[in-house]
Simulated scan of single mutants.
Amino acid sequence: MSTAHIQSPTSKAKLAVFWLYVTLPLAWGVVNTLTQAMKLFK
């Protein structure tokens, strides 16, 4: 008995949208944190 599943390949467009969905809020959070932290050192 084989339990292998046939998976359809992920389209590059879906992959790009997913990475934008993940990296944009992450990048915004990092930039926001750094700008807030710089206020402490001025």
Rank of each mutant, 00 (worst) to 15 (best):
T23C: 04
P9Y: 01
A37T: 01
L15E: 09
T3P: 00
P25S: 03
W19M: 05
S11Y: 11
W28E: 06
V17I: 12
S2K: 06
T35N: 12
T33D: 01
Q36V: 02
V30H: 02
F41K: 04
N32F: 11
L40W: 02
S11N: 11
L20N: 03
K12T: 05
F18T: 12
L24T: 13
L40N: 01
Q7F: 05
V17T: 07
I6A: 10
F41E: 00
T35E: 13
F41N: 03
P25I: 01
T35H: 03
A16Y: 12
H5A: 13
L24F: 03
A27M: 10
L26R: 03
S8P: 04
K42I: 05
P9R: 15
T3L: 13
Y21W: 05
Q7V: 06
L15V: 08
A37L: 10
P25C: 05
H5T: 14
S8M: 14
L40I: 02
T35Q: 11
V22S: 02
L34W: 04
L26D: 01
W19C: 01
L24R: 06
L15T: 08
L20K: 05
L24G: 07
A13K: 14
K39M: 04
V22T: 05
M1W: 15
L15Y: 08
A16N: 15
W28P: 00
P9L: 11
V22Y: 04
T23E: 07
T23L: 12
M38L: 15
W28F: 10
A37P: 00
T3S: 12
A13W: 08
S8F: 10
A4Y: 04
A13L: 15
K12L: 11
L15M: 14
W28K: 11
A4K: 10
M38K: 15
L34R: 09
L15R: 13
V30L: 15
V31Q: 03
S8A: 13
S8V: 13
V22P: 00
V17M: 10
A37H: 00
N32T: 14
S11H: 08
L20M: 08
F18L: 13
T35M: 14
M38R: 15
A16G: 11
Y21E: 05
L40Q: 01
T35A: 10
L20P: 00
T3R: 13
Q7D: 13
S8C: 06
A13R: 09
L26H: 01
T10R: 14
P9V: 03
K42F: 04
T33P: 00
L24D: 03
F18I: 09
A4W: 11
M38W: 14
I6N: 06
K39N: 06
V30I: 15
L15S: 11
K39E: 09
P25R: 07
T3I: 11
A13G: 03
K12N: 04
T3Q: 15
